[in-house]
Structure formats: structure tokens, C-alpha cells
Design a protein around this nucleic acid. Structure first.
Lengths: 335, 335
DNA sequence: CTGTTAGCGCCTTCAT
DNA sequence: ATGAAGGCGCTAACAG
């Protein structure tokens, strides 16, 4: 039925060790024998069994990726970065959605480990002690991707969310705005949520602008919640002149919510986001935002993981990628 | 170092066969022994090695997915459908991007097969004889996802692209439009490209509208190419009153291109797309489009694959999912 | 440069 | 209900 290395050996008139050598590009094979073996392989249509290989060599050349939701554009972009680099280093990727739900995250970490992945890339919500504990049941390298753990003990690749938010709000302030609303993510989320909220507060504070709780709405990162938040702001006795949204999707919702109310962006109200999703340049006005290099986060974390897997020594296991203010058309000086 | 089934057996004072049985939920184990084994597993922190399991049982409980580009929202949505159902049936997914490039597709098909996946889901560009040939080197079940092969010999799940396009154009005609432009995908692409182009022509033909080559522009599915196409149409001596775009992304580009030229959608020109991506309801005006059930295509094809893998007999191995016209605000009666 | 020989960790008859 | 034993297909020393 299935042709094995043994069949090839017989067909080529050599031992299976030799076949193994040529398949693995071991230089210690006479060119002539190598040729014979290749021919036998061709003739028989032999295909190496990666599972058997994995068992014998204790390496599977596959890495596990736990991701909140592949259908989310941001994470999909990260995933693409991961896969490109993985591919480059001849690794394959096992992808598991975990929806930022702890139990599910822990569960997939375990099944990934059962599958004997050579490494693990983790994107998720909060990284709790339970996560760390799950990680520690194995000794394959693991890197956090687009997150960090509180303790800072694990290798990770992320941006500085607090400063990204800070920079966005500073931009608004630089344009003369003082009454600046924020559409936040859930404060339980350390990165997209809490850190960005902190950045907002810090920017205000540094400029001597009093923090006003009524100017903050917590959204769920989605477009619709941007619309809702802005509807609320528009009812306020004293409207904000600018809105900072923790994510572009909410920012775009905000833009449309404002426009739907008959006001203009940035004429009446300026809007700024964070992320720089593709969509940001697919709306009118084009969204001013702080770019987060999603693809690179994936690529860099995968690259870091390859080093860890090869036991190369890495100088810096916690890397922070740069964010960048992208000025487009949704922010204007205060009227 | 690593604890094996053998260690557990010793610890529990049973044979490894028994441990194997409890791990695999074989009912032929006395409850009491089962308990002993579980305790030993717990105490030792035993984790079954899926690779060894795979070698011995010839089943890996993982399926391969070749996808054009996970960062593309449509495919990401399909992938999510796949993963959800896979998860439900306790399969894991190995994800490979192949960018619709034949050589890369063939290559990943082979590595996936080497990894002994229990089944394969293929999304790609054209399915050539070479693909079929690659598929035939193995006897794991394979289903085409969001594509079909010309010959119609393989299991597949897709929508009827020709009719979807036809329905879109019929809508435009029903609103009184006769001068209808099309922004097409590449005609080499059987599904999103050629079939949709055919649907456009059929709709015109049936209504006795002469086909006018100058009203067709070939784009690359992207937003920017929608803008470019529409710029071209706007230069025409006799402008179209409606635009049919083969994908929503190009349709949205068209909307913005028209708006940027100072015209109104749908006031001056109506626009309709196909796909119903999330973005379609995140623009102004909201995009009228023909919905393609991406998530379901993924889910159904994975479900079909599970049946094939379990050798259940399937009545219908080629399934066509329904598309649906979603009327929103980008189409108006001809002025 | 090539062959022999042990496993890798588990499943799976076949006995008992 | 449980144990013994033979692979699954391949890699990795170790000889020669």
C-alpha cells in the first residue's frame, strides 16, 4: 500500500540508512548512490512520512499558533506574518482560535503540546498564572505575540500600547483640542484596553487638561460600538471637539456616527484611531491613526521563535516594535 | 525527562495496554483500574504524545488547509468556519498560504500529505490537472472549498458565481439601468473572475442590452483597482449609470472614486458588488451586494470532509450554497 | 561512504 | 478486564 523507506532501499539496492541520508541531504553519500536512490524514490513515488520522522527525531517542524480570532483583520495580518516567516524556515503552522477565552486557550495550548510542536506562538487576552503554568508543563520555546505577561518573564513581541495611545492624544492636543473624548476597549484587556486608556490619561494630564469621566465610553472594539459611543457624546451638554478611539474600527464607527448626525469630520469633530487597519484608508475622510505593525509583529515573533528553537542565543527576548503616527484627513485644528 | 505511557503503567501497577485503553476511553476497563490510572497520570503529569499515536494508529486528527491568503478577509472568514467545525470534531488545522500560485500550491499539498493529515481542504486559484495529480498521490479525502474543478470530479463546496453576478446585474436592470459597467476580476480566475463576467453578460443579453466592451475593466479585486476603473468610466463620452463590481472591495473603491469626483452614489451612479464583506456595511452609502456565505462555505466543507474521513457515505459531494441579494443604499432607480 | 541495530511512544491484535 | 508482543516508518549512533 504505502511505500516506505524500506521499499526504496530494496529497490535501490542500498540500506534504509542510506535512503534516510539522501532524503535528509546528508553529504555523506556518494553522488552515484544518491542518484540511484533518487531514481528509486521517483519510480516508487515515495513520500517521507513526517509523523514517523517526528517520532524518531523528536522534531516535527511545526509550530502551534493560538490566536483569538483568525477572522479578525488584525490577527489575520499577524498570522500572515507568522506564516511567511515560518515558511521561510520550513516550519508549518497549526492554527487554533481561542477567542480570548482562558479555558479554551489553556485547552489548545495542551493539545498543541500533545502534538509535539517545536514551538508555540501565543496571542490571547490576559496571560494569567494558569497560562504560565500550562506553558511550563513543557520545555518547547514559547513567545507571546501582540501581548506580554505582567511579570515580563516570557519572550514577547508587541508594541507599546500606552505610548501609542499617548501619541494619538498628543496629536489631538497639538491641534488645539482640549475637550477630547475616548472610546476605549474593555479595561480588563491589558493591551488594547487598559494600556491605551492609560496613555489617554497621561496625555491629558501632561497638558494640564482635567480628566472628565463622562468623556470616556467603553466599547467592544467593533464598528457598531464606535457609532454608539459617539451618539452618546453628541447628546452631551458640551460636546467633545475630538474623539480618540482605541481601535480604528471604533474610530471609523465614530466617523460614520458623526456623519450620520449631520456633522462633519474633521470639520466639526476630529477623530483619531490606533491600528492602521486597511480600512483606515478605505473611508472618507481617510482616517488619521497610529499604525501598529501587525504583519511585523507576527514576522518578528516567528523569527524570534526560530532562534529559540535552534537554541541560538538571543540578546533581546522581549521586543517592542515601533508604532507610528499616520496623518491623514480625519483630524483638523480645533475650529 | 518526558513521561511516557510506560511510566504511567508502572506507577499505576498495570500494563501499558491498560493505560492506552483508559486514555482512549475504551470501555473495557474496570472503573477501579481506570481510577488508578487517572491518578497515576495526574501524579506524573503525563501527556499523550500525539505523534507516536499518529504513527501507531495512522490517524493524526489534523487536516490540512491550503488557502490563498489568510490576511484576505474573505478567506479568513472561510478559515474561521473551517476551524470552528474542525474543533467541534476534534480535528486541528494546519494552515498554509499559497497565494493562488500553482507551484506553491502543489508544494504545500505535498508537505501536508507528508504530515499525514487525515484530510485536506483546498482553496486556490485554478484547479489544474497537476493539482488533481498531486491529490491522487494519496488517498486521504480532499474537498475543494470556494472553488471547483472544471471536470467536476472532486467533492467541493462553493456558490454559483455566475448566477450571483447575474442576480446583481438583474437588480440594476430592474431599477431601470441599461448602461451598466462592470469591474471584473481576472478572466483566468474561473470563480471570482470568469464566472462573474459570464453572469454579467447573460443578464444583459437576456434583457436585450447590447454588450459594450468599453464598459468592462479588469481589476485585481482590490479597493484601489475599483477606484481606477471608475476613473476610467467617468472619462467616457457616455457614462454608465450603474457599476457592477465583481467584488465588494472593488465596489467600495468605485463608490469612493465616484464620490471623490464630486458625484453621488447612488444619486448619479448606482454601485453593486458581490461578497458582502463586513466592510460593505461600514461605508456610506451602505453597499448593496450579493452575499456569499463565506463562513458557511468553510463550515460546510469541513463538515463534508469529516464525513469523508469517517467513510460515511455522502449523498451529495458537490454542494452549492445559496447566495442572496442584500439591498442596502448604493443602488437607486435610474434618474 | 555505507550498513546494522536500536529505539521513538503508542496502538492493537491475540491470548489469557 | 488485562497483559504480552509486534509493529507503525524513520532517525541516529555505532561499526566497518
Amino acid at each position: 500500500m504505502t511505500v516506505t523507506i524500506y521499499d526504496v532501499a530494496r529497490e535501490a539496492g542500498v540500506s534504509m540508512a542510506t535512503v534516510s541520508r539522501v532524503v535528509n541531504n546528508n553529504p555523506n553519500v556518494k553522488p552515484q548512490t544518491r542518484k540511484k536512490v533518487y531514481e528509486a524514490i521517483e519510480r516508487l513515488g515515495y513520500r517521507p512520512n513526517a509523523v514517523a520522522r517526528g517520532l524518531a527525531s523528536k522534531k516535527t517542524t511545526t509550530v502551534g499558533v493560538v490566536i483569538p480570532d483568525i477572522a479578525n483583520a488584525n490577527f489575520a495580518e499577524v498570522a500572515r506574518g507568522i506564516e511567511d516567516i515560518a515558511n521561510m524556515y520550513h516550519y508549518n503552522i497549526i492554527l487554533c482560535n481561542a477567542d480570548k477565552r482562558k479555558e479554551k486557550e489553556i485547552r489548545v495550548i495542551n493539545t498543541l503540546l500533545e502534538k509535539q510542536v517545536d514551538g508555540l506562538l501565543f496571542m490571547g487576552g490576559v496571560v494569567t498564572d494558569e497560562h504560565i503554568q500550562a506553558f511550563n508543563t513543557s520545555n518547547v520555546p514559547i513567545v507571546l505575540c501582540a501581548t506580554t505577561d505582567e511579570k515580563g518573564t516570557m519572550p514577547s513581541v508587541d508594541i507599546d500600547h500606552e505610548t501609542a495611545a499617548y501619541d494619538a492624544v498628543r496629536k489631538l492636543i497639538a491641534e488645539g483640542h482640549a475637550r477630547i473624548a475616548m472610546i476605549s476597549g474593555t479595561l480588563q484587556d491589558p493591551a488594547n484596553g487598559f494600556a491605551r486608556y492609560q496613555g489617554y490619561k497621561r496625555a491629558l494630564e501632561e497638558s494640564g487638561i482635567a480628566f472628565d469621566e463622562s468623556l470616556v465610553r467603553v466599547g467592544n472594539y467593533r464598528y457598531e460600538s464606535g457609532i454608539e459611543a459617539v451618539q452618546y457624546f453628541l447628546e452631551l451638554a458640551e460636546r467633545p471637539t475630538a474623539v480618540f478611539a482605541a481601535t480604528d474600527e471604533m474610530a471609523i464607527g465614530a466617523i460614520h456616527g458623526i456623519q450620520d448626525a449631520g456633522l462633519s469630520v474633521p470639520g466639526d469633530i476630529s477623530v483619531i484611531g490606533v491600528d492602521n487597519i486597511r480600512l483606515a484608508s478605505m473611508v472618507r475622510p481617510l482616517l488619521t491613526t497610529v499604525a501598529q505593525p501587525m504583519y511585523d509583529i507576527g514576522a518578528v515573533s516567528m523569527r524570534l521563535l526560530t532562534k529559540l528553537m535552534k537554541k541560538e542565543n538571543v540578546e533581546q527576548a522581549r521586543v517592542t516594535l515601533h508604532h507610528e503616527l499616520i496623518v491623514r484627513n480625519s483630524v483638523a485644528p480645533r475650529g
